[in-house]
């Protein structure tokens, strides 16, 4: 029976069940093969598209691998100095409260050089959404140790592994901002499997919906891979992430409706 179905019969516009959103440009992504940035970009743009917010959205690209996010996200975008995306987002949202504003930041940008801006935007309860891509490394500059690099994890500036005594501990920024009264929704997601992608997309949608409620900052961490920085094949890096990153950075909601989730 299957043999009777021709390719022509299937490849008709009415049979499309998944197609890249037009809010992703046709530019070839500058990310390495298998990098979660591309998936995260696409999910955010799918949500903006599905919610009909294309003409009302302003995004902010950070410094880091996603410095060129504005080349790929087909909405109005600003490119911020290293770590300062929350300052941009604060001003934009305060000056145009009816717009949808998001800051897209990596771990070096958000959790090292931009810590003050992150904490204070969260603490003021600014009504924008932060997307925090945590891959535990500085990808763009070539795999240096990040504030989120795991204990013992090797990087180009911790070649013998992160020594906690001399290099300090990895910072759990998402748990930290969840403690602040200004955040309303704080969650940690991943985008490496179909199931994770579906959950992450729901979380992104929820974050944008919360922004429209004007109740405080919505913060979505996406734990992602950096196969180049970790020096692994893409699929291998996703498995390594499950085994090593997730135990330290457990997935799931941390704060919902302004209340911290009780850990059982």
């Amino acid at each position: 029976m299957d043999g009777t179905i021709t390719k022509e019969a299937i490849f008709k516009p009415e049979n499309i069940v998944y197609k890249k959103t037009s809010l992703m440009t046709d530019n070839i992504l500058s990310y390495c093969p298998g990098c979660g940035h591309g998936t995260a970009h696409r999910l955010i743009m799918e949500v903006i598209d599905e919610m009909g917010l294309e003409s009302e959205t302003i995004g902010i690209a950070p410094v880091g691998c996603s410095v060129l996010a504005y080349e790929f996200m087909n909405v109005d975008m600003q490119q911020a100095a290293h770590g300062r995306a929350p300052a941009h987002a604060t001003a934009i949202k305060r000056l145009m409260p009816h717009k949808t504003v998001f800051a897209y930041q990596g771990d070096g940008d958000l959790a090292a050089i931009g810590t003050a801006e992150t904490i204070h935007a969260c603490n003021r309860g600014e009504n924008f959404t932060t997307f925090f891509i945590n891959n535990g490394i500085y990808g763009m500059t070539g795999g240096q140790m990040a504030p989120t690099t795991l204990p013992g994890m090797k990087s180009s500036t911790s070649p013998y592994g992160r020594d906690l005594k001399s290099m300090g501990h990895p910072i759990k920024m998402t748990e930290l901002v969840a403690q602040l009264p200004g955040t309303y929704y704080v969650t940690r997601q991943a985008v490496h499997t179909p199931a994770a992608v579906r959950k992450a997309k729901k979380a992104i949608r929820k974050a944008i919906e919360i922004q429209q409620m004007n109740v405080g900052l919505s913060f979505v961490e996406i734990v992602s891979n950096c196969n180049s920085g970790w020096k692994m094949a893409p699929v291998q890096s996703n498995h390594w992430m499950e085994e090593n990153m997730f135990p330290f950075y457990p997935l799931g909601d941390i704060k919902v409706d302004g209340k911290l989730i009780e850990k059982k």
Partner: peptide
Amino acid sequence: YDACTGCTNCAIVCPDGVITVYRIKV
């Protein structure tokens, strides 16, 4: 291998968004 069910899993995990998925009932 022509065993595609059009589940979209490949497309939604594709970091580069290069896959369009079609599905029909037979």
